[in-house]
Amino acid sequence: MKTYYSSKNIFFVSLLWLIVFGIVSSFFIPENEKGESIPIGIPIFLSLIGGFLIWTLSDTKYRISDNNLKYYSGPIRGKIDIRQIRKIEHVKTVFVSAILKPALGSHGLMITYNKFDDIYISPKDKENFIAELLKINPNIQIV
């Protein structure tokens, strides 16, 4: 089993940490502008959002084990049968057409698998990552 951690786009990661610090700083506001205390539901909701962001920032990685590519990005988790991967395309932008994007980097890989499924990931060591996938499925088209 090999683990590859996500590369990180400094702007995107900084923005997420800024949101987390904004959420944390909001807990130091004891009341709103009318002098009323803030309902307990708001801090709970903000805590959940902050927790999900920290979880995503600290746990975005990809594992290759047996014939599966497993991806982890906070609460987003799943696996892909490597034998079903048809194409890997190098992408150098944050804006990609994939709906599923468990990545923190802007220079990543668009993986097309099954018939119409795709996913955007951004392992730090792309060359070794692709080489490991090709060992399992040498029919993958690299673009």
Rank of each mutant, 00 (worst) to 15 (best):
I54A: 07
F28W: 15
K61I: 10
D81Y: 03
T112F: 12
Y62L: 06
I85W: 04
Y113E: 08
P75S: 10
I29M: 11
A103N: 11
A98S: 15
R77E: 12
W55T: 08
I44F: 14
N139I: 09
K87D: 05
P123D: 01
I42P: 01
K124T: 10
S65L: 12
P39V: 04
G51W: 01
I44E: 13
N32S: 06
F129L: 12
G108S: 04
F129W: 11
S122T: 15
P138F: 08
S58R: 12
D66E: 15
E132F: 12
Y72N: 06
N128T: 12
L69P: 00
S73P: 02
T60S: 11
S47N: 08
S97Y: 09
I85C: 05
S97E: 14
E36M: 07
N128I: 05
Y62I: 07
E132T: 08
I42Q: 11
R86I: 06
K126D: 06
S37F: 13
P138T: 06
P39Q: 07
R83M: 09
K70D: 08
P102Y: 07
F52D: 03
F95P: 09
S97P: 11
K115C: 07
D117C: 05
I64K: 01
K92Q: 15
K92W: 03
D117K: 11
K101Y: 05
E31T: 09
F28Y: 15
I29T: 13
L46G: 01
E89K: 14
P75C: 07
T60L: 05
I119N: 01
Y113I: 05
L109W: 07
L53R: 00
G108D: 01
A103I: 07
A98Y: 06
G105A: 03
D117P: 07
